[in-house]
Amino acid sequence: MIQKESRGKKLLTLFFSMLYISAFTFGGGFVIVNFMRRRFVDELHWIDEQEMLDMVSLAQSSPGAIAVNAAILVGWKVGGFAGMLAAVLGTVIPPMVILSVISLFYQAFAANRYVALCLRGMSCGVAAVILDVALSLGKSVLKTGKWVHYAVMAAAFAATFFFRVNVVWIILCAAAVGIALEAAARKGGRKS
């Protein structure tokens, strides 16, 4: 393996890879992670398959955008702190530019009757997409068969939908339940 293929060049490759993937990947974090695997595992051979899988599951279970999280992990692995910065910049620049352009048009066109109709129609589709995702995820929670999970799900829904409790509190309460469960499981002698 050639370790010293010029660090600067490696960082540039990392930056432009993320820039390209981020600019052309529609469909959110789960999709972009696949493209990253193809690029960094199959094409560049910077990361092996198993480590990439670990990174993906870490990125998905950590707070924040999955794509940004995955970029941070790949960046550290490939080029340390500078690599992390290069990967994150590459990931956020395309959406920032695209959304800036759209915002410009939005301010001007949102009042236009045809644009408004289109947006209203699309937002019916967005509601369907979000509810479809919620149902699929909900099914997987139901499959766990853990009554604590059912209770957390029901309580969280009631708190947010009916009582408009701040979302942050709901997440913190659920995390507290998770920590309590994990502590109890460890005390009970289950090896992690």
Partner: peptide, 18 residues
């Protein structure tokens, strides 16, 4: 494990947003 138990709450939030 801890983050995994956030999942039911997250699902509920997404459902409510939808």
């Amino acid at each position: 494990n801890v983050l995994g138990s956030l999942r039911p709450a997250v699902v509920a939030l997404i459902l409510s947003a939808g």
